[in-house]
């Protein structure tokens, strides 16, 4: 058995629209170890959600097309599975939590029935048994059993997200995909939900792919971090490696853009410009037009993800010069 629950290799996903081809994911590779949580960080349009949908083989087709690559889930390639196998895999092996708990739930079904539905489907038990089990699931996520008879609109945002988590966990998946699970929630509620997720991941011995744009959430929950830009991983490593020994200029830019809670008033250093149009990516490094360290070579050559020590990989040409280091790492 492999050490990794998930191994993605050279994944390429395009959306072929009338206006042209959107290069959403362009040769992406990473893996997630068993019982590990990987944070996938990036801005809007970086291809984070497309990556997650690819793992479930759920990229909307048309216009989406998984062009090439492999996604090994527990050793089996998701992209080669038959429809029946996919159906078995979804929910049982991999479950997904979406950003907006209101649209993820059915407004005309009680939450108890919604949880029971997935238990019934996947575990082939009677509906009565399933409902009893649904109540247990509710208790597990910190909601009173008596509320199984309520409808989603009777719950607050944080409670709804707990229900969504309960549904995702009904079949004890090996891998949980969480797409911005707390972005729609208030900070105090976010803290509660993150705490719950961390606890469940530990007790159920799951792995998790956590998609977020919030570096604070990543620091709080993840063992490993992958930073994504224009459909590629630009830096990956343990949380300590990426946060404390940052290698990629884009990652540095993200940290510099954050208002510092401890010191106030200094001007923020934003990343100049915008993310390139995924229909029209530059020939060389996609970050080069915004990068303060870019040289001529960056505009022509695409950098490969290279191991720099430990588990820390970076895709940046600047490291051809052995002396190179980011400004962030100079002042401790």
């Amino acid at each position: 058995m492999s050490d990794n629950i998930l191994e993605i290799k050279d994944l390429v996903v395009h959306y072929e629209t009338d206006d042209g081809c959107v290069n959403a994911v362009n040769g992406l590779s990473f893996s997630i170890g068993r019982k590990k949580t990987l944070g996938l960080v990036g801005e809007t349009g970086a291809g984070k959600t497309t990556t997650a949908l690819s793992i479930l083989n759920l990229v909307p087709d048309p216009p989406g097309k998984i062009k090439s690559g492999s996604i090994l889930l527990d050793g089996r390639d998701v992209l080669q599975m038959t429809d029946k196998e996919l159906e078995e895999m979804r929910g049982n092996d991999v479950a997904m939590i979406f950003q907006d708990p209101m649209t993820a739930l059915n407004p005309v079904m009680t939450v108890g029935d919604q949880i029971a539905e997935s238990i019934e489907l996947h575990q082939h038990v009677s509906s009565k048994e399933a409902f009893e089990k649904a109540k247990e699931m509710l208790k597990m996520v910190g909601i009173a059993e008596s509320r199984a008879y309520d409808y989603p609109h009777q719950f607050s945002g944080g409670m709804r997200q707990r229900v969504v988590i309960a549904i995702a966990l009904t079949c004890k998946p090996k891998l949980l995909l969480s797409d911005e699970p707390t972005t729609a929630l208030d900070v105090t509620i976010q803290a509660q939900v993150l705490e719950l997720m961390k606890e469940l991941i530990r007790s159920q011995q799951m792995s998790m792919l956590l998609i977020t744009h919030d570096l604070g959430v990543v620091a709080e929950t993840c063992d490993d971090v992958a930073v994504m830009y224009a459909g590629k991983i630009v830096e990956i490593g343990t949380a300590d490696e990426v946060f404390n020994h940052t290698l990629h200029p884009y990652t540095e830019g993200l940290f510099n853009s954050l208002p510092n809670l401890r010191e106030r008033g200094e001007e923020l250093i934003p990343i100049k410009g915008l993310m390139p149009d995924p229909m029209n990516l530059p020939e060389g490094c996609a970050f080069a037009p915004r990068c303060p360290y870019a040289t001529e070579a960056c505009e022509k050559t695409q950098p490969e993800l290279t191991l720099m020590g430990g588990t820390h990989c970076v895709a940046c040409l600047a490291y051809r010069d052995a002396q190179f280091s980011l400004r962030r790492n100079h002042n401790g």
Partner: peptide
Amino acid sequence: AIPLPIVGKEKPERQL
């Protein structure tokens, strides 16, 4: 409750 983007260094205890 604010998640801080800090890893491995001293972090204040969370009060939920």
